[in-house]
Design a protein around this nucleic acid. Sequence first.
RNA 1: GCCGAAGUGGCGGAAUUGGUAUACGCACACGACUCAAAAUCGUGCGGAGAAAUCCAUGAGGGUUCGAGUCCCUCCUUCGGCACCA
Length: 996
Amino acid sequence: MERYDHKTIEHKWQERWEQEKSFLVNDKAGAEHYYVLDMFPYPSAQGLHVGHPEGMTATDIYSRYLRLKGFNVLHPMGWDAFGLPAENYAIKTGRHPGELTLENIDNFRRQIKSFGFSYDWSREINTADPAYYKWTQWLFLKFYEKGLAYRKKAPVNWCSSCQTVLANEQIVAGECERCHNTVEQRQMAQWFFKITDYAEDLLKGLDDLDWPVNIKEMQKNWIGKSDGAEVEFGIKNQDKKIKIFTTRLDTIFGATYLVLAPEHPLLNELKTQITNWPEVEKYIKKTQGKTELERKTEAKEKTGVKVEGVIAINPANNEEIPIFIADYVLTSYGTGAIMAVPAHDERDWEFANKFKLPICEVVKPSYDRTALILHGTGAHSKKNWYQWLKIELEQRGYRVLVPDLPNSSMPNLAEWLKALEPYIGYLDEHSIIIGHSLGGPTAIQLIQNLQKRIGALILVAPTSAGMEWKPINSTHPSDQASCIRTITEAPVDWKLVRQNIIRVVGLFSSNDPYIPIEAKELYEHNLPGVYRIFKDRGHFSEKTNELNELPEFFNLPCTELFIGNGTLIQSGKFNSLDSEASKVAIAKEIGAELKTQYRLRDWLISRQRYWGAPIPIIYCEQCGELPVSERDLPVELPMDVDFRPTGESPLVRSKSFHNVKCPKCSQPAKRESDTMDTFVDSSWYFLRYIDPQNTKEPFAKTKIKNWLPVNLYVGGAEHAVMHLLYARFFTKVLADLGYLNFFEPFLKLRNQGLILGEDGQKMSKSRGNVINPDEIVDKYGADTLRLYEMFMGPLEDSKPWNTSSIIGLRRFLEKVNNFSNQFLEGNIKLEHPGPEAETAALRARAQTIKRVTDDIENFRFNTAISTLMEFNNVIISKINISHETKVIDLLTLLILLYPFAPHLTSELWEKLNSNKEVIWQQTWPVYDEFSLLVDTIKIVVQVNGKVRAQIECAADAVESEIIKAAHAEAAVAKYLDGKKIQRTVYVPSKLVNFVL
RNA sequence: GCCGAAGUGGCGGAAUUGGUAUACGCACACGACUCAAAAUCGUGCGGAGAAAUCCAUGAGGGUUCGAGUCCCUCCUUCGGCACCA
């Protein structure tokens, strides 16, 4: 077979798309608009890795598919060009980061083009371009006007040897990654965006998005909403109060001390009252010296200091309680102070135990009642018949205990009682015992001997009950004998039983004629009612009510830490209320304010870096902090910059940049020297693609309506929280400012998984397992690489690279190419076309179209490709077909394959079509539902659930015919011979199952 | 520790609502073509067994006529969060 020359073909078509501007989008085109977006890459010096083309291939397939479906598709690409690596590289080499970045971008663009992606390159953007960051700065000003951008002091990671601020990712185990100096915390004035104003909107907005559940979940956790209350604790002999936040107001009667964060402002205010101030101050200093990382690594052991001389008063019971400071309370969350309830909070519990503080229980578990299941007996001892019952009971608030019981062939009563000893304490007249007899002592005997009064006895007959359950009105001699035997072997004092058991409940399967003998006996001995509970498919039927009628409350000793909700005790007039209800009541009583807290913190956007968009603010000694006026934008990055790290931002050392005239008073002033976090750049880039050339505004409102919100967004899951949350925040702010008419930027999100190295490890230079996509394109071609990356597995899974598997995809293309060429040259001889073969061919084609279309719609590209492979194999092997059919099959295959492998299919399409039409202007094939209909269907025949045969039936055969045929089948008849068929299961057009 | 996802041949994976487990591809083995090799084509390919059959979807149990799929318990891997009161 002749191999096709991928280099020539791919080059030819990429040129043509470029020259004909095939994928430039017209805003005004009438067709339905669809916006397909990739997360734009950071143009690193290493070039693309194989992970990049994965997501991009997926969006390219989808875009090309949608265009064939008649959509007007916007599919742009750009560069997230600001960032740390370029600056670090500049420090090392002395080259300007701008120069380097442009080089990297050229390399990225060349690579991306070599994969044949159908981007509209006329809309390319670059966040480091002044024409772009002018508008990033403009947006900053809008946020500033709205009060959403503000400056405050905040701790930064500081390396005193490098004299620079470090990003979190530059810190390895508490040390600077470059010089291994210990990183410290320093307070510096920093710019923030007030994202917390939008916490609730950001949370609520998630509901309607078509995003992966895990990403939504991560965002929810990040926002971290918790409903609670703010309570003011008084201080003895003082006017001051300490405000705390709690989600467990129900436990306030158990608050035995307060804990303040070491940074809490009140400490300084009360300095004079604190009798052990030196000790307290020492602790404060110690924690301040710690980095966040150190605090986390030392988290195992709780530390703290008691604040002497100041005493707090619990507003719930007016008790005097001590105050502590401890670093397990964070200043950044809530009010920086907590009430400690050691009995019901794990951290407080640990702290209280370490410092020997009182622990007061105020909530006890709402296990109303206990159920004891005795299962270790007889024929059913190994079966977990009680599992479903356990679940049902637990759902009804029972604490279910399952003792480990002796399971010897002849266990005796004494053994059993010994095993049950630890559980006796749990039993009272509200609890129930569930069990059955045989093999061991009967449940009734046990109750007698436990000398405990219990609420009810449930006797169980599992569905598959065997010999131990007898028909209640059986006349069979052996049944009766067994019945008598049970009674004689287990003499029961019915009088005693009656005293001990309040009620007996029989538990039977709905179609089971058997009931426990014990139940029968109990019934006959006038116990208060033998009830039947029916079990149907693992659930109680309506008769379940019987269980709910059982007595209500059951007091349990609570000796351990209990963090769940429950019922209040030792809480004055709130006793016996449940946790939820008591919160509202207590808040009202003590005047606490119900409040919602979020974990989300404001977004720190200041970076003491050069390579980013300057923050457009000027500081004047006279006039203070002033925004740069809009007409002075952009505030351009200066070129005369010294990157060497010193104590301040590199921009401070640029004379041309840093020193300006105050826009108000014209006196000398200084520019803000911090630049913005690169996440600011990427929070609105998807808007700029709409109108990238606009010099008057970031985007025209009228154009926005054409395209946004983004219909499909694809990228790595590493951006699950930060980028996606920030972009959503920007969208909401811009909508509130009237620039946008929607509140969520990305309607549908899909993540591509990580591509691992051939060793199954994450690809990295140090491991030496990095695959360079250029080499793959060179050796196998872009079409092959695209197919391979899609064929590897589900898009969102992480999967290892395997170079030897690539050949299979190349072979597939080779086969398509070869057959097309041979067909064109008349080298394929078709023989004996017949109507059945034509129908079959039509069906195969229709099935292929259906499956490939469904798969693309649902992002199952791996199975789409395997379907195409199967179809190709059919086309190649079936030659008893008419020329016309073969031509249509071939053309259909080419169009279906085109989104995946656009170069080769364009080439073959051109060869097969004498007219000038190109493949990317075709329409996506449709199929006829009738073609999918079949004459005969295959029916699987099972006997007792095991597959024994497969029969062919007419598609319109009725049930009785099919069953008859199944019965007659030799391979089946063999098993049915001489047996009685109890039941026949028939699943239409699928299978028949004979149950013997 | 908590939240989320997943565990299927030698490997990547398939099985859309519970209904023939292992599609498609890689690797491997044998055969054809060739002086030979590569490429290509053909056949085979979960395990045990001569066969009939039996056993296999991380482990154990349950529900069901029937479980990779549903339920319970546990184990492992990956991703995220981690004193959030």
